[in-house]
Design a protein around this nucleic acid. Sequence first.
DNA 1: GCGATTTGTGCAATCGTTTGCCGAACGATA
DNA 2: TATCGTTCGGCAAACGATTGCACAAATCGC
Lengths: 378, 378
Amino acid sequence: MRKKRTTLKDIAEAAGLHVSTVSRALDPNMRQFISDEVVNRVVAIARQMDYRPNRMAHGLRTNRSMTTGIVLPDISNVIFPPIVRGVESVLEPRGYASLIVNTDNSERRKERLVDMLLARGVDGVIHAAASLDDRAALELEKHGVPLVTVNRSVENSSIPYVVNDEADGIEQLMAHVHGLGHRVIAHIAGPQGTSTGYHRLLAFGESSERRGDLGWRNRVAYAGAFTHEEGRRCMSELIARDLPVTAVIAANDTLALGAIEALRAHDLSCPGDVSVTGFNDMPFLELIPPALTTVRIEQFAAGAAAAEMLLKLMADEPADTGVVLPVRLVARASTAAPPDQARSAGEEPQPVAAEPADAGERAPAQRRSRRGSSSSRA
Amino acid sequence: MRKKRTTLKDIAEAAGLHVSTVSRALDPNMRQFISDEVVNRVVAIARQMDYRPNRMAHGLRTNRSMTTGIVLPDISNVIFPPIVRGVESVLEPRGYASLIVNTDNSERRKERLVDMLLARGVDGVIHAAASLDDRAALELEKHGVPLVTVNRSVENSSIPYVVNDEADGIEQLMAHVHGLGHRVIAHIAGPQGTSTGYHRLLAFGESSERRGDLGWRNRVAYAGAFTHEEGRRCMSELIARDLPVTAVIAANDTLALGAIEALRAHDLSCPGDVSVTGFNDMPFLELIPPALTTVRIEQFAAGAAAAEMLLKLMADEPADTGVVLPVRLVARASTAAPPDQARSAGEEPQPVAAEPADAGERAPAQRRSRRGSSSSRA
DNA sequence: GCGATTTGTGCAATCGTTTGCCGAACGATA
DNA sequence: TATCGTTCGGCAAACGATTGCACAAATCGC
């Protein structure tokens, strides 16, 4: 059924040459050893016969598949496709194709998939689903397969990474809500097995203490996954603790959206009663009310940077041990002054610079306590 | 640098056997010809030496790469990842890995990418970026590579497809807005080079005529792409034509969102002044106000169905020539009674059955003209 | 207990490329 | 004219797996 593809041998016969000569004539690097006349003839015949080199044979001989693996938690999660596109923007022009696999946050699945990539002889792997101690990643390292993690990193390893500046992002959010007057701030922490969840929590703690808040630990709820549902659950949990929280820093946008839903379910408004922030700035976020204040990460750039690093590793060139990409605060409508000191509506919030430690934990509300109506959406 | 992987030969040496024996012992289909004792020994050694068959060598010999290609317009477009997951839910358990490529709606790029897939010897291709006359698809057919299109189809070809019931979807939307009282309905048509854009327009025309509206052609704006921007542009164009349009059927959700934006820019409200509908029901849509009335398509199921068909084709078994998946109307807030005859709020709209041709084009507004305030959001 | 069958394993070719090595042909040089 | 480099192209061995065939040993029928 399947039409036989034309091979070097076919061309060799048609041209009355040896296959090795044809091979060389078609290889830009070997062309110099072949006369121009032959090269032209071979190229012409190859084109005419619709020759397409067999990458499997090529790979078998050279031990390079010109294929890379991209390991994701889930391609359906909107933050990953841009990363993939970034990776491919670099790899595709260099002739690499990518096998994309989804781990669905299962370590077992991850290992199976890495096995599959290994069996297919990928030349390198971009890993966006790394856990803090990632067995699959170590397996790849063991086999000497070039590997770069992106978006997340593997702790206590020499695995090169491209990550976002989590600490700075959290600090910017904290400065923002602090500037709005919030003093009792909670955190919905992401899965602590991921570097993002872990480092954002860490940053939240440090930022809190820097502002003199030593009791932050009581105001952390731990999400088991970066999902809507977990966001809802964590927010409900925080509400149940009955603390005077006026702002919630969620570890990512999805958790934040779930949190806002939970607030609504408890007849609390955002930002009227509680301000909420996210992380990532996923697509369409600005269209969902209340538009979420968040931190924008550079997904495409991250993918591209990771791919550049991978290229170097695959070429045995020295590469950076890691890259940290800058993030940027995007202030929107989900954050406002806390209810007991609402500013006049419409005034642009002015983020205050990080203040030198404030001594007292839970500094009492201060500044322009104008006590307006508790915001628009009641 | 790279650690040498263990091969059949290594195992053969370790076991004191010939590689062909080892090969057979490891192949479930050939195992019957080998004594149990040898099989067990070989399997044990293989496991211990961490043997992983070299798929490239395997593929070269058997001419099957156990790899498929998935061709998409753009993985960043939220409607495609679920299709991909559907495909993989079927293919992955059968041992196939997938090379995913993005055409970015460029025919040239598409051909280059198909070339790349061909070079890698994919066993089959799932094509979600087909155009009505798709050269790349025909190229694949020519080479005898099993191919199934999903979400879109290729006209005048025997290429098997899995599509959504476009005609029924449009009909459901038309019945819905007609039932609300709309009589002057416009269409923002998708790219006519795609089966989705084409068939939805066709269905709009037929549905209009079935209702006695023969002047529908004047109320069609053609989008060059399924984008936000084109939705805006088309809506502006329709507004500029100054027709008494009260409802707009957009060819997909993205166009609809753009259209609503344009309405807003012209100080018109949706659904107060104009009702708008989409198609696809993409994620998060229900959270963006006004929540869009749309038609839900089954992306995951479509991917899975396409993969099932591809499996059959790859096994040279007879397969369906095509599958049409059912769609379902999802009525939300972006549709309401037209402004000059607003029904009492809260009343559940009752879709009217398709009426026998109504003779008069542009039937004058009728029925319960209660003339209320022109809806909530002014 | 002898030939015929079955069973288990080895041999070697093959898939399509790449590449180290060798040798023929050529022009230039002595 | 003999020699020496070049230049160009062919030969053949890989890469790692599969598989038709051959062959030895074990098993069976009678």
